[in-house]
Structure formats: structure tokens, C-alpha cells
Design a protein around this nucleic acid. Structure first.
Lengths: 191, 191
DNA sequence: CGATGACTAAAACGAACGCTCTATCCAGCG
DNA sequence: CGCTGGATAGAGCGTTCGTTTTAGTCATCG
């Protein structure tokens, strides 16, 4: 019946729930129920408790989001157009999810700011770094000089991040589509 | 001793706490303690409970943040430089707070996405709209055509928003300073 | 066959949650 | 003076939290 292991179902369910309601807002029991697992299973696979589950979930979200970015970035050669494609893909997916599935780490990151060196913070920082590198590599591959490419990549990710939040709150694609156009123009101005 | 009313102390404390730990992560009792008030006082001034407190707190955060933006926007005539000034001011304040006091609504907005028409969501949307209008008015006052100014203002706020989150996670000013430079360039390219 | 260990299942713990309730304080006023 | 009503104070409600604990299932392997 079930195509994936209990361990994986827990990670996937946790990732989705944390993405939608944040880290504090998501309970271990809710994760277990959503994953069709029992509390015992969760603590069996993650003796570290809720925090350990969250770290694995965030890593999963990082990879999922990275795949999305890669798809869009590889769809077009021109870097400016590729970044616009990212924004459009994000907009489409966000709309398709009913405006609930945005960035998988932002909420968790903001909620755990107080604990600066927590594993969760590190997992979020790692995700952001991974995504930036994806964009940076695209720009570098298109001949952008190194410091410029990294700087642009950072702003690209940050802008998409912020635009996605606004898109979720206003339940509109516009912020993301706008961000795509503006980022595209910005990148083109450096080419 | 205390210079402000109990009502106001509750709002200010709630605003700060929600900004730092989100809506779900902040308890009513914690708000009362931080505001040097008692639980009874909180429910006296806010019969609507936690949600009512949060709505007032978010409105307060909106105004505080708006004052910050206004200060930066009014400090320079040139619109591109003014937006860079916004980013630099945000970076300075964020650093001064120990990277904890970022955007006062993002966390709350993301945590309550499930309840699309909740008063909290509306308060967050209202805050974002207010800030966008501030930037748009600056651009309009500098002679930018109307649709362009509004579009740019949206991306400016969204980029600052996203850059602030990354700045908080990485505990660095760089994302915000970078956003300022890039936004400045983008705005200048439209002038 | 008996035993081992991975996995599932659920009861129960103390703590914290949002909220309600009653009691008390005290300034303003007839 | 007594009364009234806004404001303060905190005990306690039921519920849920993350976690621990104990019991049970079941395939694998000596």
C-alpha cells in the first residue's frame, strides 16, 4: 500500500507541516498522524525528538526547493530569463498549493532566532546557502565574474523569498512575477 | 515609574515578542509578564484574547516600521539613494538588536497562512500595503510614472523583507547592504 | 525452536497553553 | 459616607504540548 518507508513519510509530512505552520505551530503528534505513523515510530527514528525531526524536515525542504530552482534555471540559457523562469515557476506552484506551500524554511528560521546556534538555525542557513549557490553557479556558468555573481545570487534568493511571503499573504502571483521581471532586469544590467 | 499606560505596555511588549518568536511561540502569560501587567489586565483590555492582542501588536509594529522607512526615505532626495538608505538603516537597527528584531509581521503572517481570512492575516497584509505605499509615494514624488512606481515599491519592500530574514539567519549585515545596492541600481535604471 | 532487535502501539507524565472565574483595589461621584 | 465600575490580581479550568515508559508485534537468524 504505502510506497515509502515510515521514516521517509515522517520527514515528508513534517516538512510540509513546518512549511505551512512553522516549527512551534507543528506538533509531534500531528506529524505522526499526518505521516500515518505512531508517536513511538517518530521517537524510534528520531531519538532527538521534535528538533531532530525538524532538522531532517528542513533538509528535505531544502532539497525539494533546490530541485525546483534547478529545473527553472536549466530551462533557459540566458541567465536573466532563467531567473524570471524561477519566479514564474514559484508563482505557479504557490498558487497550485492554495498559497500555503511557500518557502520551507522561512517560518522555522524566524521562530527560532532566539536560539542562535540551534541545529534548526543551522539547517535553515544551510538551505539558504545551497539555493544561493545554485543561482551563483548559473551566473558563473554564463560568464559573470565571481564576486558579482555571488552578490547577485544572494539578492535573487532574498527577493524571491520576500516576494513569496507577500504573495502568500495577498494570495496573488503578482509579487513573484514582478520580482522575476525586476530581477531579470537587474541581472541583465550586469551582463 | 512607568511612563506609559498598561494598555500600551501590553501592545508594545506583544509586538516585540511576536516579532522575535512569532504568534504561536508567544504566550499570553509571557506578554503579561513582559509588560509588567497581569493576565487579568490583558483580558480586560483585550476581551478578544490572544488574537486581539496580536492584531493590535501588529498594527503597532506596522507604525514603528513605517516611521523607520519614512526617516530613511526623507533623509535623501534622490530615490535610488533613499532606498539604499532604508537598507542601511534596517541593517544598523537589526545589528543593534542582536539580529532579533527584524520585520515585525513576517513570522506571524507565515504562521497563520492556514486561516486565510483571520484578522491577523489582514493586519499583516495591511502592514505590507502601508510600507509599499510609503515607498511608492517617494517614487511618485520623484516623477516616476504611476504603475512603475507601484511595481518598484512592491519589489523594494519584498527584497528588503527577504534580505532581512537572511541577515537574521546568517547574523550579517551583508544581505541587507547588498539589497540596498541592487535595489538602488534597479531604481536608477528606471529614472 | 528460542532469541534478538527493529519497529509499532498507546498509556501516562509534568509542564505549559489559552481562557474563565472570583476577589480585591481604588478613584469618582451622589 | 456608600456605591459603582474600571482596573488589577491570581487561582484554577480543560486541553494540548513534548516526552517517557511499557508492552506488544514480527521477521530474521543462530
Amino acid at each position: 500500500m504505502q510506497t515509502s518507508s515510515t521514516h521517509d513519510r515522517i520527514v515528508v509530512a513534517a516538512s510540509r507541516l513546518i512549511q505551512r505552520q512553522g516549527y512551534v505551530g507543528t506538533g509531534i503528534k500531528q506529524i505522526a498522524k499526518e505521516a500515518d505513523a505512531t508517536l513511538g515510530s517518530v521517537y524510534h527514528f528520531f531519538p532527538g525528538g521534535k528538533e531532530a525531526v525538524a532538522v531532517a524536515a528542513i533538509a528535505h525542504g531544502r532539497d525539494e526547493f533546490a530541485d525546483l530552482l534547478r529545473t527553472a534555471l536549466d530551462s533557459v540559457d540566458d541567465p536573466a530569463e532563467a531567473i524570471d523562469a524561477c519566479a514564474r515557476l514559484l508563482a505557479r506552484e504557490l498558487r497550485a498549493s492554495g498559497w500555503t506551500d511557500g518557502c520551507p524554511v522561512t517560518a522555522a528560521a524566524l521562530e527560532t532566532l532566539g536560539t542562535a546556534d540551534s541545529p534548526i538555525q543551522q539547517a535553515c542557513a544551510d538551505a539558504l546557502r545551497t539555493w544561493q549557490n545554485l543561482v551563483a553557479d548559473k551566473l558563473l556558468g554564463c560568464g559573470f565574474p565571481s564576486p558579482e555573481a555571488r552578490d547577485l545570487a544572494a539578492t535573487v534568493i532574498n527577493t524571491l523569498e520576500g516576494a513569496e511571503v507577500t504573495a502568500q499573504v495577498t494570495r496573488t502571483q503578482d509579487p513573484l512575477l514582478l520580482a522575476g521581471r525586476h530581477l531579470s532586469r537587474l541581472v541583465a544590467s550586469y551582463a
